[in-house]
Nucleic acid binder design. Structure first.
Lengths: 218, 218
DNA sequence: GTAATATGTTAGAGTAATCTAACAAATGTT
DNA sequence: AACATTTGTTAGATTACTCTAACATATTAC
């Protein structure tokens, strides 16, 4: 079992990776709030464990094995955040610190149960995909509606996850998958968005709704 | 903040304490699965932190400060076990290992929310009291009904915690606080109990019900 | 192309928690 | 009371993770 520290390094490497999945040690140490020699020595351990590719003075890259562990930590983190918001009534601003701790719980059973209780969400409310039990992620180019700009014309592709109430809400507003809509305005204060579609030229959608609508710009 | 290790030592000292709250180092080391010198050196740290009273060759005793921390760890543990069973559908046999980990999460908010979602249970289903936010426990001599013997005559004193469904169930069976009943038989296989009271000479109560009925022998 | 800056590496040390080996004190047995 | 056993303590080492100081390599600026 990877220690909490190792899990944190792998998660950081996973999150910081650029298009090629490469990260340098300075970035890593800054992100984790440790000194560069500390990060460097830990990277050597990860290398010895076969979790990261390493060559002197070259950027770091996770091995397949390291990437899987990283993805599983992120799975635990994102499932936890979803659960705290959906099932325990926390606000999105409150859940990060708790999830940072719970992500290190070692119990597949526990997280799979969470997953089940939420009906297997594929994306978190920010549109980030939740890796599956094997660490695989659905590569998605989708944006949450609240990440779009005024003037964008977008098509609804996925619901980050659904609940009875949410599906009901969409139904009432004549919104279904495939729906094309235009962003009319974005309210800075409460992050709500006004969209226009079909017979609804001026529909206000709250942040909570927008987070769950994953769209593609067209 | 106490480390996970320190939390585990304090919890152990709290749980192992006899009538006087005294524990010896051998017991402690055996319970925690560490060597005696390890326990000994840790105890010195706890002493330096003012968490335990210590004199050479004398049994250990938690200070008020140490006892409070211990009680709060137990609060987190028992709340978690209740939550896993009540809200996540785990069986009682599955929750211990998960709760052992979650009890170290540092977030009063998280545990208070759990508490609230379960309607502030005062006892866990085994009849053990759940310490409050300040580490105070209701000293109770109550037993869960399933800890009683055939032939015992008992009076219902407290519900370990209540839910709408549970209260409903009790109502339907004419059971209310103060009710006096006699244990007719205990089924070993499923830990159900048959009791007799008032106009119900032969009422079968499942394990789940018995765990929630806290009684006093009379 | 040299100097300045940023990034990466090595060496050496500290802390928390653990261990084994060896010894000391307390307790139990006959 | 003497011996055996259990319990407690000390000394010294180990592992994982962290640090600072000093130095080496790579990158950027002019």
């Amino acid at each position: 079992m990877a220690s909490q520290t190792v899990e944190n390094y792998l998660k950081a490497l996973y999150n910081l990776g650029d298009d090629k999945g490469e990260v340098n040690i300075s970035e890593l140490s800054a992100h984790l709030g440790v000194s560069k020699p500390t990060a460097h020595s830990m990277v050597k351990n990860l290398f010895d464990e076969g979790l990261v590719h390493y060559q002197k003075y070259k950027p770091l890259k996770l091995t397949d094995k390291g990437e899987k562990v990283g993805a599983l930590v992120i799975r635990k983190h994102r499932l936890t955040e979803m659960y705290l918001v959906d099932k325990m009534g926390f606000g999105w601003d409150e859940v990060h610190d708790i999830a940072e701790q719970i992500e290190h719980i070692n119990s597949p059973l526990f997280f799979d149960r969470m997953d089940e209780l939420m009906d297997f969400p594929q994306f978190d409310p920010h549109g980030s995909p939740i890796p599956d039990k094997d660490g695989n992620v659905i590569k998605n180019e989708y944006l949450a509606l609240n990440q779009c700009q005024v003037g964008d014309v977008v098509q609804l592709k996925t619901l980050s996850h659904s609940s009875k109430d949410f599906l009901n809400f969409l139904d009432k507003h004549d919104i279904s998958l495939g729906q094309i809509m235009e962003i009319i305005s974005v309210e800075v204060f409460d992050k709500s968005v006004i969209v226009s579609y079909d017979k609804h030229p001026n529909e206000l959608l709250s942040q909570k709704v927008c987070e769950r609508l994953l769209v593609l710009k067209i």
